[in-house]
Each structure stands twice: as C-alpha cells, then as structure tokens.
Design a protein around this nucleic acid. Sequence first.
DNA 1: CTAAACCCTAGAGAATACTCTAGGGCAAGC
DNA 2: GCTTGCCCTAGAGTATTCTCTAGGGTTTAG
Lengths: 150, 150
Amino acid sequence: MTYTIKEVSEKVGLSIYTLRYYDKEGLLPFVARNEAGYREFTDGDLNIIHTICCLKNTGMKISKIRQYIGDVMAGPDSIEDRQQLLHDHREKILEQQRILSENLKEIDYKLDIYDAPNAGDIISRELQFAEAEKRANALVDPYIKTLPGR
Amino acid sequence: MTYTIKEVSEKVGLSIYTLRYYDKEGLLPFVARNEAGYREFTDGDLNIIHTICCLKNTGMKISKIRQYIGDVMAGPDSIEDRQQLLHDHREKILEQQRILSENLKEIDYKLDIYDAPNAGDIISRELQFAEAEKRANALVDPYIKTLPGR
DNA sequence: CTAAACCCTAGAGAATACTCTAGGGCAAGC
DNA sequence: GCTTGCCCTAGAGTATTCTCTAGGGTTTAG
C-alpha cells in the first residue's frame, strides 16, 4: 500500500507544492519513485513526514531538518547526532514557551485595562501623560486631536 | 529627558536598523524629531515600543502591529478596536502554546527512544521495518548501507 | 481513443522581516 | 577647524519559506 502526493497532502496537511518543495530541499530522500517518476509514499514515509512536521511546527528551519533527516538516513550510527540535535531543539522549544507565556502576561495586563469598566478614563490619562511628556521635552505632540463634541 | 536611537536600541534589544525599519513601516509614528531631523524618544515612547516587542515576540505581523499602533494614536475612541485586536491575538498565542506543547510531547517521545540504553536496537528495528516496507511495495530502498565491520 | 484528472520539473514570483550600503549632514572634543 | 562618531534617507540585497506557472508526460473512465 502506497500513497500519491495528493493523498499525503491531505493526510498531513501540507500542500502538494510544499511537499515537492520539501523534497527539492532534501527533506524527503526516503520517498521512492515509480517507473513514471511519480512519488510513492509508504506508511513509514508518513511517519517520518509527521516528525518533520513536528520539527517545523516548533520552529526548526528547513536546513536543520535536512540535517536530522540525513542522520536518520544514515542509520543507527547517527543516533548520538540525532539525540544531540533533538535535545538542543528541545531547549529552544522551552525557550519559546517561556517567551510566549511571559509576553502573554503583558498582553493580559493590557487587556485587563481595556476590559475595565473605566478603560476610557485610564486610556485618557495615559494619553495625557504622553502628551505632557512631549511638551516637557519641547517635542511635537503626534497624537490625533478629536474636536470636542458640543 | 529623551533618548537617541542608539540608546533605545540598547534598551529594547532591537538593532538601530530594525528601529528605523519599524519607523518606516509606520510602527513608530509617535516618535518626534529634533531640528536636525534626529529621532528623540521619550520614556512613554519606550513603553509603546515595549508593547510592540510583546506583539512581535508572540508572532504578530508588522501590518497588524501597525493597525494596533494606529488605534493607539487615535486615542480613547479606538478602545474597542484595540480590545478586539488584543483578544484575537491572545487566542492566537494560546493556539501557539497548544501547538508547541503538543509537538514537544512527540519530540520527547522520540528523545526517550534515543536516550534509552537500547536505542541502537530500537532504531535498527525501525530501519528494518522501513526497508521491509519498501521491498514489500517493490520500491527502491533509499537507506544507506554500511559495510559490516569485520 | 480521448478527455479529465493526475503527476513531474524548472524556475519565476511573492510575502515577510530584516540588514546593509551609499551619500550626506550634525555635534562634541582637541 | 577638524576628526570621530553619531544621525538621516533611499534603496538595494538577503534569508526563508513557500506558491504558482509553463510545459509536458501518465492514468483512468467512458
């Protein structure tokens, strides 16, 4: 049982274009071709592609994924290299998680203000501070003036 | 008290190039200029730039950040728009977090294998499976053969 | 046998976010 | 006044990851 590129595209959620691009970039050296030159994907191939997606989804660059796949193709001799590569990548994921949750906190802080019942007052005050600071430094006030409704 | 672009660069961790690029892209309309055309950053400006970094660090595109900044410049009338924008972005961050931890699980699963004392055996068996599958489908075996050491 | 639906490659194009260069002005210390 | 180190703009160049087009074979259903 093998799959066509279209079937794989639907299974893994990558466009046919992307799959061919990945192949061109050396990410799919394990995919065999039939007599007509068509790619034939096995279930084992799908497993590796799944791993490629994991690495991609966590921000690994194509060139690094190619390196990992190269290791996989090389067989058991490359286990240490793969181990190292994945451990390093794991650290990068943890770092990404740290950055995301840290920045999320700040965004939540801003949302608390916007969601407050007196958001208008708070924001108006902030704006007045900013304008006062510009004036204090003899700078142009860049904020948009709305005419007072009468 | 105002800051030069170099000082801001050091404070916020963006290169001078990037700051100028952001200005060109409309992310810093609040930064005033002195008589010579030099940018003069206030502390309030630094606060907004900090927010820009939060949005950028969590994957927001420049064009979207520009929209948010446009709202900020418009004053309190735009609070609902900012609220909406940040709430939507918040959801995207949660989604990113979900994707990261899901994929991290899979990578940890692979690392468990590579870190196991019998990793060599497991990997060899996987490889044999993959090769058998290729043979079963009358496909070329793409895996690298190492000569048996004698 | 023919049309529709696939498959292929090579290479151009696009989107995003920088990064740098060229050419020139300004400011501070000696 | 001159050098050094900043500052400016405009625009070219780079890196990455797709995405699509052109041109051409293959497969399948009727």
